[in-house]
Design a protein around this nucleic acid. Sequence first.
DNA 1: ATAGGTGCAAAGCATTTGCAGCAGC
DNA 2: GCTGCTGCAAATGCTTTGCACCTAT
Lengths: 136, 136
Amino acid sequence: MTKSISSIGQRSTRQRTAVVDSLQRNEDFRSSQEIHDQLRHEGISVGLSTVYRTLQALAEAGEVDVIVRDDGESVYRLCSEHHHHHLVCRRCRTTVELEAPSVETWAHKVAADHGFTDTTHTIEIWGLCPDCTTAD
Amino acid sequence: MTKSISSIGQRSTRQRTAVVDSLQRNEDFRSSQEIHDQLRHEGISVGLSTVYRTLQALAEAGEVDVIVRDDGESVYRLCSEHHHHHLVCRRCRTTVELEAPSVETWAHKVAADHGFTDTTHTIEIWGLCPDCTTAD
DNA sequence: ATAGGTGCAAAGCATTTGCAGCAGC
DNA sequence: GCTGCTGCAAATGCTTTGCACCTAT
């Protein structure tokens, strides 16, 4: 299970394990800095650059989902094995994972119709979750 | 026609006119810096901060579309009067404006199903346009 | 005349990078 | 012991801000 995760790099280090562990214990998208902070609070000292480098490697290896928030900060989350999208609370960041075969199909069809190749897409839905709606 | 554009701020200045003009003459998404560069090449001197401030104001007024690129840079484009999405060439930035009523519906429905309120969504499709595909 | 706008330079942030030291293998 | 990994600090790149000057009204 941790097997596939350690598919990045050639060595298993305390730092990488810590970052991956942190990802595994969290459902929502978090930035490098947030992950770094959490580790620090847990008493685990890992350099910020190492966190960045690790997340980057994981993203390249396809082990994590990356989305760029409206403010330009990149946030990461371990992803399930297949493509999906998210419904995110803009206040508390609660995240619901969505599957949308019909939208996938639509995206590829539309792109193909216009002669585009090698397509990818970004679909994110933002809103207020039930709790935050009530909290108003 | 320029009327609605001048809806930001209280004064009509050379600089704002220049930025809006530049937007009107371009179909694709461009960053503040790119717009600033273009104006400079046209011999129009406008401070970079002014470009940023103007685009920000336009975005707040809903006059332009903003999307955050994968690298975290914000890019702007005058938007038509209604909600829509984009198919963008990741190499040359050619942009096709899309309308997708079915996807709109899907997004709102999915959000509502999970009890989310006040929802918005981001849908961008990236790929290589026909020209750039051929250029390989 | 008088606020709102502008421009510069400095500050802020997230992220990347160079390099010397450290540690898996 | 070699090589990859780490961590610091400095650098980078986009964006924001403070502040004095300018200018449309």
